[in-house]
Computed example of a mutant assay.
Amino acid sequence: MTIRQTFAIDDQEFRGKRVLVTGGTKGAGEAIVRRLAAAGARVATTARSPDAGSPAELFVQADVATLDGAANVAAATIDGLGGIDIVIHSVGGSKSPGGGFAALSDRIWQDELNLNLLAAVRLDRLLVPEMIKQGSGAIVHVSSIQRRLPLHESTIAYAAAKAALSTYSKALSKELGPKGIRVNAVAPGWIHTTASEAMVKRLAAHAGSDEETARQGIMDALGGIPIGRPAWPQEVAELVAFVVSDRASAIHGAEYVIDGGTIPTV
């Protein structure tokens, strides 16, 4: 399966904008970094693994799921870019084993909350004061449709953390809107990434089945995807680019779903 879409990019749209994208070396995060850099933004990104050729201007190797990691990223971003205009919390994921709620230890729960909720909370706490000083900014929290369609077999903790992230994002928007800072969320469904394929492998191993059976099991649990495929990372990046752009200057406190029609209700 290969992506067919091509998108025209205005290479001046984000000229001079200082952007942080967390988790920007793989999947949707990497696509977001490439999209905004191509549009003229000065982009910083971060990941736990070493930089493998990101187009970002600044790379910080750190684990934003930890207090120290978040602090290091915030300080390096402000120092390296001279401030911050846009923050996109793309980092996230799940390493929970299959087996439902009983398979989730306290350690797994804490790890999922640290990565999928508290990383964003901590970085916002460190970076938002800079935005308040300048009276402008845009924040996007990348949530998930699993906050509404949790997969009980494999991602309970992840789904719960993303539900909390969406609620936190809405609350933050009410506080920051009057201060000139827009806050929105983007909720993808299944994205075709290496991480999603790794989850397929874990589920297959746990069930003693093959990957195609595990993949179909995820599709069945989601209720199917009407367009017949997962979203591509580049498609998620296009949505994020729109939400943080001046074209969306009246969009605030919203959550945009990009799931190929997976959620079956209004």
Rank of each mutant, 00 (worst) to 15 (best):
F242R: 11
I251C: 06
G208T: 08
M219P: 00
A231V: 05
V121M: 05
D220G: 08
L118C: 01
R42S: 11
L20I: 03
D51M: 08
S209Q: 12
G24I: 05
P50R: 09
I78K: 06
A250L: 13
A161G: 09
H252F: 04
K95D: 15
I88W: 09
W109K: 11
N184K: 05
V240L: 07
V142I: 14
E235I: 04
Y256F: 15
G217K: 10
G98F: 14
G260F: 02
Y256N: 02
I191D: 03
R34E: 12
G82R: 10
S90Y: 05
S94Y: 12
D79V: 10
A237T: 06
H152Y: 15
I84C: 06
R107G: 13
V21F: 06
D111P: 04
V257D: 05
T2R: 12
G53H: 07
I156R: 04
L127A: 07
G261N: 03
R4K: 09
D10S: 13
S105E: 08
I258F: 06
G24P: 09
V186I: 14
A163N: 01
D85M: 08
W232I: 00
A254Q: 14
D68C: 01
A159S: 13
H206K: 14
T193A: 07
G69Q: 02
W109F: 13
V244L: 07
L123F: 02
W232T: 06
S166K: 00
T167M: 07
D10Q: 12
V21Y: 09
T45L: 05
D68P: 00
A205V: 10
A214H: 13
D210L: 05
A250F: 15
R147G: 00
S166D: 02
V186K: 07
S209Y: 05
T213Y: 07
A71H: 04
S143C: 09
A157L: 07
I251W: 11
I258N: 01
L165G: 01
V60G: 03
G23C: 06
T25K: 04
G228P: 03
A47N: 11
Q5M: 13
A161R: 08
A157Y: 08
G69K: 06
S166I: 00
T167E: 00
A102D: 15
E238D: 14
V91T: 13
I9F: 14
S49H: 14
Y168R: 02
S105M: 09
A119V: 06
G135F: 10
Q61M: 07
A159T: 01
N184V: 02
I191W: 08
D10Y: 12
G224A: 07
M199A: 14
G253S: 01
E212L: 12
R35C: 03
P97M: 10
P178A: 03
I132V: 15
V257F: 08
A185L: 02
A65C: 09
A161E: 06
Q146T: 09
V200M: 13
E235V: 05
V43I: 01
I3M: 12
S169D: 00
D124P: 01
G23T: 05
A254M: 08
S105C: 09
R15Q: 15
V121S: 00
T6G: 12
M199H: 13
H152M: 15
H252R: 04
I218Y: 15
A70L: 02
V73Y: 04
A207C: 05
Y158W: 11
S154R: 15
A120L: 08
S154M: 13
P50M: 10
R34T: 12
Y158N: 06
F101K: 11
T22I: 08
T265P: 00
A39P: 11
R34G: 05
Q110C: 10
V140H: 02
T6L: 14
